[in-house]
């Protein structure tokens, strides 16, 4: 009989596994999806995966720096989402297109 306690006793590894899973999902999305909006969301997902590991590390190593870093990441993520969405919206307005492949044409 496995010790349920030990299963419920959530340690660092659990967080990291979730974080890695989130990161991989996000990365897969960035790599294979064509829709700009989805890609942007996937990027958010990746960033949040990183945030999760930061917080987890911070908690278990009892070092507040990790959590500070999360704020930075969130800020950057917000900025990135802002710029990315703005670009995506502008392009959509102009060309009615959200396919990332289409964006290649912008290189002129």
């Amino acid at each position: 009989m496995p010790n349920l306690e030990s299963l419920l006793d959530i340690g660092l590894n659990h967080y990291l596994i979730v974080s890695a899973a989130l990161f991989c999902i996000g990365m897969a999305g960035v790599l294979v999806r064509r829709n700009v909006l989805v890609i942007l969301m996937c990027i958010e997902l990746m960033l949040n995966a990183v945030n999760l590991s930061f917080v987890a590390f911070s908690h278990y190593s009892e070092n507040i720096n990790g959590q500070v870093m999360v704020f930075f990441v969130m800020t950057i993520a917000a900025a990135e989402a802002g710029v990315g969405l703005a670009l995506a919206v502008t392009i959509f307005k102009k060309f009615k297109e959200v396919n990332i492949r289409f964006f290649e044409q912008l290189k002129g």
Partner: peptide, 13 residues
Amino acid sequence: QNGNIQRYAMYMS
């Protein structure tokens, strides 16, 4: 360097 951003992301990964 064909400009396909997903390719770039792929290389990076």
